[in-house]
Design a protein around this nucleic acid. Structure first.
Lengths: 236, 236
DNA sequence: TTTATATAGATAGTAATACTATCATAATAA
DNA sequence: TTATTATGATAGTATTACTATCTATATAAA
C-alpha cells in the first residue's frame, strides 16, 4: 500500500500553492529544517533561498512574508494532528479512551516520518512547540482570524472538546480545557527541556510524565464536577 | 503614607540601570505604552526615541537590544506579582485560601496604578499577556536562563507550588500545575479577547469565568489525588 | 575654582532585513 | 507557432539594528 497524504490548506496562507511545484515543496522542506535550526527570529527568506539554491524573490512568489510561512507550517501541523486523532479514535466508543488517545497524541514527541515526503514531522513538531505561539501573538491576530488562518487549531480543539462533552456533559469549560491541554502539552515540554524548574520533570527526559500530569489534570476536573455513571477516579 | 515601591532587577538585564535616571525611567514608561500600542515586532528603539525626544543611541546606552528591554519589563511584572501575592497572603494560614488568592491575582486584569510612578501596570499586564512568551521562546533561552533572567517568573511559580504542596503534599506535580495556572490565566484571557472559540467565555468579557475555570481545574486535580482531611470539593 | 567624570544630544555610518521591480530564459500548453 | 507560466538573475529601496564619534552640560572631586 503506497498512500500519499496531502494536506490542503486555506489558500489565503500563500500566494502560490507550495504543494503544487518542486520549488514550493523545497520551500516547505527546507524552511522546516532551517527554522528548527536557527529559530524563527533569525530565519530569513534570503538564507532559505541560499539553502535551496533559488533567490529571495523566488520565495516571495509563494509566501507574502515569513509569518505567513510560519502560519502555513503551523496549520499543516494541526491539520495533520487532527487527521491522526480521527484515525486513532475511529470506531472507539468510549469517551475516556478518546480523551486519553488525544492526550497521548499531543503530548508524545513525534519521532517518525510519515507518507508526507517533504515534511519532516519531527522537526515540525519542535517548531510548533518553540515558535507556534508566535503565529497568533501578533497585532494582526484578529485580521488573521477573520481569514480563518487559525481554523486547524480550532478544529482540533473542538474535536477534543466534543470528547470532553461526551465524557462529562455537565462540565462547563470543555473548550478551555481542550485548548489548555494542547497548550500545556507543548509548553510543559518546552519547559522540561529549557526551564526545568518550572516543572516536575527535571530528570525524566521522556514525555511520559507530561502525559500523566495531563491525564490527572483532565480527569481530575472532569470527575470532580458531576460525572456520568460508572466513571470514577482512575488517575490518582 | 507615601510609599514608593522600587523593584530592583538582575543587572544583566541592562547596561545602565533605567531606574536611576530620568531618561531611564522615561524609557521604561514609554516603552510600555509603545509596545502595547504597536506590538513588540513593530517596536523599535528609533520609534521609542522619537516618543521620548531622545536618540536611538541614547536608548542603546541603557539596553543592549529590544529583547533585553522586554525581559526587563516582564521580570518587573513577575517580581511585582510575587510581591503582591506575598502581601495578600500574609498571615493567611489556610493553603486553600492562599491558592485562591493566587488565582485571583494572576487571573484578574490589573486595573489600577500603584505607587510605581512611571510604570503603568495595566498596560504592562497586557504586554505580558500578549508578548511575554516571546521572552523565552528564543534560541538563546538557555543562555538567558544561565544569566538568571527568568528568575522572577520561577520565583512566583515556586511560591504557588509551595501553597500547592501544603494543600496536598501527595500531589506529584506542584511546579507544573503552578506554571500551568499562570500560563493559562494569560492565554485564556488572550483567547477570550481574540480567539474566543478556543474558550467557553465568548460573551463574558470579564475575567471571572477564567477564575472559576482555573479554580475548578486546580482543586479538581488536587482533591482527586489523595488529599488532606477536611478538604472536599468546593468547586463544582 | 579648576578639573575630572559622567550623562545626554547630535550626527554619521554600516550591514542586514524585508521587501518590490524588471528582464531574460526555459518549459509547457494552446 | 505562439502564448503563458515558472523560475532565475539582478538591482534597488526603506527600514532595522546596531556602532562610533564628537560636543555640550551637569555634577562631583580636588
Amino acid at each position: 500500500m503506497d498512500i500519499k497524504l496531502i494536506i490542503k490548506l486555506n489558500d489565503k496562507l500563500y500566494l502560490r500553492n507550495p504543494e503544487e511545484s518542486d520549488l514550493g515543496r523545497k520551500i516547505l522542506q527546507h524552511s522546516i529544517v532551517l527554522i528548527e535550526q536557527i529559530g524563527f527570529e533569525s530565519f530569513t527568506f534570503k538564507k532559505l533561498a541560499q539553502e535551496i539554491g533559488t533567490t529571495e524573490a523566488g520565495i516571495y512568489r509563494y509566501f507574502e512574508n515569513k509569518h505567513r510561512l510560519l502560519l502555513y507550517l503551523v496549520d499543516w501541523y494541526w491539520s495533520w494532528q487532527e487527521y491522526r486523532l480521527m484515525m486513532e479514535t475511529k470506531n472507539v466508543a468510549d469517551a475516556e479512551t478518546k480523551i486519553r488517545t488525544a492526550i497521548n497524541l499531543i503530548a508524545t514527541r513525534v519521532e517518525d516520518d510519515l507518507s508526507t515526503g517533504h515534511i519532516n514531522e519531527k522537526l515540525l513538531h519542535d517548531i510548533v512547540m518553540a515558535e507556534g505561539a508566535k503565529s497568533w501573538l501578533t497585532k494582526h491576530v484578529e485580521a488573521d482570524n477573520k481569514d480563518q488562518l487559525f481554523k486547524p487549531f480550532k478544529d482540533l480543539c473542538a474535536r477534543i472538546a466534543e470528547f470532553i462533552k461526551t465524557y462529562n456533559p455537565d462540565y462547563a469549560y470543555p473548550f478551555s480545557l481542550s485548548s489548555t491541554m494542547i497548550e500545556m502539552a507543548h509548553s510543559q515540554y518546552f519547559y522540561m527541556q529549557h526551564l526545568p524548574s518550572l516543572t516536575d520533570f527535571g530528570n525524566a527526559k521522556s514525555g511520559d510524565e507530561i502525559i500523566r500530569f495531563l491525564e490527572q489534570m483532565v480527569f481530575g476536573v472532569l470527575d470532580s464536577t458531576s460525572k456520568p455513571e460508572g466513571k470514577k477516579k482512575k488517575t490518582g
